[in-house]
Simulated assay, not measured.
Amino acid sequence: MIQSSPGISDSAELPQAEAFDAAAVVRGIGRLFARNDIWCIPEMPLRNGRRADLMGIDPKGRIVIVEIKVARADLLGDGKWPDYLDFCDRFFWGMPPALDRAPLEGPDFKPDCCGIIVADGYDAEILRPAPLRPLNAARRKTEVERLARAALRRQTALLDPACVEHLRGA
Results as ranks from 00 to 15, higher is better:
I2L: 15
I2H: 05
I2A: 03
I2D: 00
Q3G: 00
S5K: 04
G7S: 08
G7H: 04
I8N: 03
D10A: 11
D10S: 12
D10C: 10
A12V: 11
L14I: 08
P15Y: 04
E18I: 05
F20R: 10
D21V: 00
V26C: 06
V26I: 15
V26S: 10
R27M: 09
G28R: 02
N36M: 03
I38F: 01
W39K: 04
W39C: 00
P42F: 03
P45F: 08
L46P: 00
R47K: 07
R47I: 08
R50N: 07
D53Y: 01
V66E: 05
V66P: 00
K69P: 02
A73G: 06
D74F: 01
G77A: 07
W81K: 04
W81P: 12
D83T: 05
Y84H: 06
F87D: 04
D100Q: 10
R101T: 12
A102F: 12
E105K: 15
G106S: 15
F109K: 12
K110D: 15
C114K: 04
V118M: 06
V118L: 09
V118T: 11
D120V: 05
D120K: 01
Y122I: 12
P131R: 12
R133E: 13
N136G: 08
A138K: 14
K141A: 15
A150I: 09
A151F: 10
R153L: 09
Q155V: 12
Q155R: 14
A157T: 13
L158P: 03
D160H: 09
L167I: 10
L167V: 12
G169M: 08
